[in-house]
Simulated scan of single mutants.
Amino acid sequence: MTANILFAARSELWAEYETPLHAALDAAGLDCRLATEMPPETVDYIVYAPNSAVQDFAPYTRLKAVLNLWAGVEGVVGNTTLRVPLCRMVDEEGLTQGMVEWVSGHVMRHHLGMDAHIVNPDHRWDPVAPPLACDRPVTVLGLGALGSACARMLRGLGFAVTGWSRSEKRISGIRCLHGDDTLATALRGAQVVVLLLPNTPSTQDVLNASSLALLAPGAFVVNPGRGALIDDDALLAALDSGQVAHATLDVFRIEPLPKDHPFWAHPRVTVTPHIASETRPPSAARVVAENVRRGERGLPFLHVVDRDAGY
Rank of each mutant, 00 (worst) to 15 (best):
T203C: 12
A289V: 08
P217N: 04
D232M: 10
V292F: 01
W264D: 05
S202L: 10
R280L: 15
G218L: 08
T279K: 03
I275A: 15
T248R: 02
D232L: 05
H246S: 12
V194I: 15
A247W: 08
G218V: 11
P273Y: 11
A213M: 06
L214T: 10
V271R: 00
V269S: 01
D250E: 09
E278V: 15
V287C: 06
T200K: 07
V221W: 00
A216Y: 02
V194T: 08
A209E: 13
V193S: 03
V206W: 01
P281G: 02
N208S: 05
V192L: 10
V192W: 04
H274A: 13
K259P: 08
W264G: 13
L207D: 02
F252R: 03
R226P: 02
V194F: 00
H246W: 10
L236M: 10
D232V: 12
D240K: 14
L207I: 03
D233I: 15
A213G: 14
I254G: 11
T279D: 07
S211V: 09
G218T: 09
L214C: 01
G225S: 09
V251D: 02
S210L: 13
A289T: 05
L214M: 13
L236T: 03
L195P: 00
R253F: 12
H274K: 01
V222Q: 10
V192K: 00
P224V: 10
A234G: 03
L229N: 03
A237Y: 08
L215Y: 03
H274Y: 14
Q243N: 05
I275T: 15
Q204F: 11
P267D: 06
I230T: 04
D250G: 02
V251T: 10
A245V: 11
A247Y: 04
L195H: 07
A284I: 01
P258A: 10
F252H: 14
A186S: 01
V206Q: 03
A219N: 08
V244Y: 00
L187A: 08
S283L: 08
A234T: 02
A234Y: 03
A219P: 11
R188K: 14
A234Q: 12
P262H: 05
W264V: 05
L239A: 04
R253I: 14
